[in-house]
């Protein structure tokens, strides 16, 4: 599903280059639950951003379902973005000025989904995550775990095929972390959503079915 071929990311420093990622080769198949691990600054977040089209690689090729992303039209990439990829962030990244309901609804708005369908989809997700009672609250009125729950709800509401999660439990205590990870596992197994997570935690990494170690821009398997 995701194929990275000799992906590099660097910034010019003086006359040389400072590599964040160097010639990464990586394939992630449909239905996998992959954990990317590595110390701070090893390039794992950059790798996730590249997969999520938030950043462009300096070199190399990225194929999404066999199609080269760099050759896609802007429109197609936006479609891919909206339809196939969902994001979950360490700091939840909810929009402070929007309620829980509105936050979850936002990605659907960008997909031009009809009002009635939006309503039913958001209602489904709220129901599934058991947060119906909180739909009119603002992010600042929720605990960290609840915010992340909303973050995940927002990621899956547009029915993506892949969820990219950047340290989704980094700001949570262990009980909350556990339930979030179980939720990911469920999404992976029941909904067949491919999940790629970046994590520091060995415990969290075990929820996945593959671990990729990254250090100084290289993959160490």
């Amino acid at each position: 599903m995701i194929q990275l071929q000799k992906i590099s990311k660097y910034y010019p420093v003086g006359l040389g280059r400072n590599f964040i990622l160097k010639e990464i080769d990586l394939t992630i198949n449909e239905g996998e639950f992959v954990s990317i691990m590595g110390p701070s600054g090893s390039g794992k977040s950059t790798l996730l951003h590249i997969m999520g089209l938030l950043e462009e690689p300096s070199d190399g090729q990225y194929l999404f379902e066999g199609e080269r992303v760099d050759r896609m039209s802007e429109k197609k990439r936006t479609e891919l973005h909206r339809g196939s990829i969902g994001f979950v962030f360490q700091a939840y990244h909810l929009i402070d000025e929007l309620t829980v309901y509105e936050n979850i609804e936002t990605p659907l708005l960008y997909k031009n989904i009809s009002s009635s369908e939006r309503k039913s989809r958001v209602a489904d997700v709220l129901d599934r995550f058991n947060i119906v009672a909180k739909k009119d609250l603002f992010p600042s009125q929720l605990s960290g775990g609840q915010q992340q729950l909303v973050g995940i709800a927002r990621a899956i509401v547009s029915e993506p095929r892949v969820i990219l999660a950047d340290e989704p439990t980094g700001n949570l205590h262990s009980d909350q972390a556990k339930s979030i990870m179980e939720l990911f596992k469920e999404l992976n197994e029941k909904d067949k959503i491919t999940i790629v997570q970046v994590t520091h935690s060995d415990v969290n990494a075990t929820y996945g079915n593959r671990i990729i170690q990254i250090r100084d821009g290289h993959i160490r398997s």
């Binding site: 990244h93 929009i95 402070d96 990605p107 960008y110």
Partner: peptide, 16 residues
Amino acid sequence: VKEISIRKSLGANYKH
């Protein structure tokens, strides 16, 4: 900035 980043990650383009 945070809001814009989130919106972009949710599929907003520069026109939006």
